[in-house]
């Protein structure tokens, strides 16, 4: 691992419960304060350049990478996220200039996502949790979600009666992933994706039930019903406390039954396995 493992909880508990002398506590507090006030460090990125066997070809971008990491750390973005991108690029044997460009883009994306979450008090203070949440936000944005959608889904999750920050961010990310899944199968307008994400995040559905909406919207969105209409029906029913099954029943009641010929491109190829480059042959139908 690039990052050292986090201290076990037991160790943290022991430290909190210790009977250190007041002077020792004061010294510890002053030292900690000085460290906190010091310039943000790019520890994970520095370590990557020092220790990774993949780092040698990227020595030319080290200065820029560390500067980006320091800038990100200063606004609450754990620099391990950039170290992971370094490792990903290096493993993929990406040229140094392209890796530097990807790092710049990633740093900007992460800083912006951190600001979006922090504004809503949804950025965890724990650095491990913050890294996990921001890492997932980064993936969703690179998968096509925009920052307005991220903010809107967070607001909707926070607007639920039982506010709980940890659950809210998880709910918002799940809703956005559902939109990504649908968009990867049927064309969905940006405004429809946003409406659906907000409706899901605000709905009474359990987060685990979100994925079931994907085949329902795809089935009817690819079968002649306007995807916007499908989304409107789903949003309306979810807003009234409806289930995914109720959405499917309502859409089925519209009289549209998908036919094989008009079902649209099969973008999910079920692993058996056809790629556009022809590397893998699709098994012949029986």
């Amino acid at each position: 691992m690039i990052e050292p493992e986090a201290a076990p909880r037991e160790a943290v508990g022991d430290m909190q419960g210790s009977r250190a002398a007041p002077v020792a506590r004061l010294v510890f507090a002053v030292l900690f304060g000085l460290l906190a006030l010091g310039p943000a460090r790019a520890q994970a990125v520095e370590e990557w350049f020092q220790r990774s066997p993949q780092a040698a070809p990227y020595a030319t971008i080290r200065g820029e990478a560390e500067a980006l990491a320091r800038g990100a750390a200063a606004v609450g973005v754990p620099d391990r996220l950039l170290a992971q991108r370094l490792e990903e690029g290096a493993q993929k044997a990406v040229p140094a200039d392209r890796l530097a460009a990807a790092l710049r883009s990633e740093a900007a994306l992460l800083e912006s996502a951190a600001a979006t979450l922090a504004k809503r008090a949804l950025l965890p203070e724990d650095r491990d949790l913050a890294a996990e949440v921001l890492g997932q936000a980064s993936l969703l944005i690179r998968a096509g979600i925009d920052e307005d959608e991220l903010g809107a889904a967070c607001d909707a999750a926070l607007a639920r009666p039982k506010k709980y920050a940890g659950a809210a961010i998880s709910r918002a990310l799940s809703a956005l992933y559902t939109v990504v899944s649908i968009r990867s199968r049927v064309p969905l307008r940006e405004s429809d994706g946003r409406r659906l994400a907000v409706a899901l995040a605000r709905s009474g559905l359990r987060t685990e039930d979100f994925p079931a909406l994907v085949p329902v919207v795809v089935r009817y969105g690819a079968s002649g019903l306007d995807p916007s209409e499908v989304v409107s029906i789903a949003v309306g029913l979810l807003g009234k406390g409806g289930s995914v099954e109720s959405v499917g029943r309502e859409l089925g009641g519209k009289g549209h039954s998908p036919q094989r010929d008009d079902a649209g491109p099969d973008r999910r190829q079920n692993g058996r396995s056809q790629r556009a480059d022809g590397l893998f042959e699709k098994k012949a139908a029986p």
Partner: peptide, 12 residues
């Protein structure tokens, strides 16, 4: 190939 969801890896 069995998963429709993809993410731009930023490296092309």
């Amino acid at each position: 190939p069995s998963v429709a969801e993809t993410v731009n890896d930023g490296f092309g």
